[in-house]
Amino acid sequence: MILKKIQLTAIFIFCLFATIHTSAQAESAATAKQVVEKFQTELIAVMKNGKQLGYAGRYEKLSGPVSNSHDLTKIARIVVGKEWEKLSEAQQQKLVDVFIRLSISSYAYNFKDYSGEAFVFDSEEETTRGGVVVHSHLIIPDDKPVKFDYMLKEKGDSWRIINIIANGVSDLALKRSEYTSILQREGFDALITKINEKIDNYSKL
């Protein structure tokens, strides 16, 4: 009982600290590395409570961190390539909306529990066109580490993730091939239906 109280107090203090820490960072413009590390910390924290939170809880907790660290509007635009210009404004908005929900739900689904994983920062490099790549890896106990490379671009006065390369596979390139292919073969409505199906599956699986 006493132990539980101590644990609760510790969690409370941690949460309080986390909030202060978050607001402090929000005030001063965070560097690319800080944006990535903050997001990774938030992700690990959700994973630690993943089972208790359940899918809906994880979705809610990750909604802010994912939206604030990624430039999801820009990503949604890049993944449809040239097709973006062919969409009406309403369609563009609809695509951005479902894409944001898909991104959060895929995090909520794929990072569901914790078994000692930890992100480790490796290095940071600037790209020729003013972007930054943050190299890091995820340590998974009893398994090979997974390399995570984050590509960030400046948006206003903060840095936002626009691509994640996991073990050498670029999420943006992968999505772009899929989305443009579906748009060209089956059209906009089919794409939205497919994305909604995925979101639905994530919440049920």
Partner: peptide, 16 residues
């Protein structure tokens, strides 16, 4: 040409 090859970013010593 927006072939994905040009936007592929790869990372060191890994495999999937």
């Amino acid at each position: 040409d927006i072939s994905t090859e040009n936007i592929t970013l790869t990372a060191p010593e890994v495999n999937t």
